[in-house]
């Protein structure tokens, strides 16, 4: 056996590497193709589950995930990079808006929320989507982390009527919303974000419902 030349060795190892790359990329591509539909379905199901927590599925009859308008950066909703508004309709009539919104002033940074506002201006429900508040202290804004399982803090917003929206402030600021001692900031951030989102929905309701599906406002 003669020593392989440097060029020969490079060519051989390069060839092997390419062969392995092709084979295993094909494996990944095949798996991707085989699971893509299932993954999309799972993601949609997850989103619908989240939305069903803020808006009862019985209160609309359209395909919610297909009926949305994209928003550019919107200061009222705290969206620096834009977000989506889903439009719930019952028999073609506006039923509710589901807004993606962000509270920029949480104790540990931004809190992403979804807020459902009915056509009559009342808040149907609110959920925190992502939050990093102090564990055990400020994280009660997420009902999964709230110790009170029967009446989680965030359900105070469920069914909040339009007439009571001016009182949508934490009690410390003179409003109606209770909060936990030592963790006012988290509650205040969410409460103010909900109030802003409800006001935004009321002010822009016609425009938001009228926009063609999938369009950018």
């Amino acid at each position: 056996m003669s020593e392989p030349t440097a060029l020969g060795l490079s060519a051989r190892t390069g060839g092997v590497m390419v062969a392995f790359t092709i084979v295993f990329t094909a494996l990944m591509a095949f798996t991707y193709g085989a699971t893509k539909d299932q993954i999309d379905a799972s993601a949609a199901e997850e989103k619908m589950k989240l939305i069903s927590e803020v808006l009862p599925p019985a209160s609309y009859d359209n395909l919610l995930l297909d009926d949305y308008a994209a928003l550019g950066p919107t200061r009222e909703l705290g969206l620096d990079n834009g977000g989506r508004v889903y439009r719930a309709r019952q028999a073609g009539q506006p039923a509710a808006l589901i807004l993606e919104t962000t509270a920029p002033d949480g104790y540990s940074g931004r809190i992403d929320l979804i807020v459902a506002v009915r056509a009559d201006g009342s808040v149907s429900g609110v959920r925190a989507v992502t939050q990093r508040e102090t564990p055990g202290l400020g994280d009660y804004i997420d009902p999964k982390k709230d110790k009170d399982k029967k009446a989680p803090w965030i359900t105070q917003f469920t069914g909040l009527e339009a007439a009571r929206l001016p009182q949508c402030k934490v009690k410390k600021d003179g409003g109606d919303i209770a909060y936990h001692t030592g963790a006012t900031i988290s509650a205040r951030a969410v409460t103010n974000a909900v109030a802003r989102a409800a006001r935004y929905a009321a002010d822009n309701q016609n425009r938001l419902f009228a926009a063609p599906s999938g369009s950018t406002l």
């Binding site: 102090t134 564990p135 055990g136 202290l137 936990h180 001692t181 030592g182 963790a183």
Partner: peptide, 10 residues
């Protein structure tokens, strides 16, 4: 305080 932040902050 890490385990019971709420009780330890009152």
């Amino acid at each position: 305080i890490v385990a019971y932040p709420a009780l330890m902050s009152q």
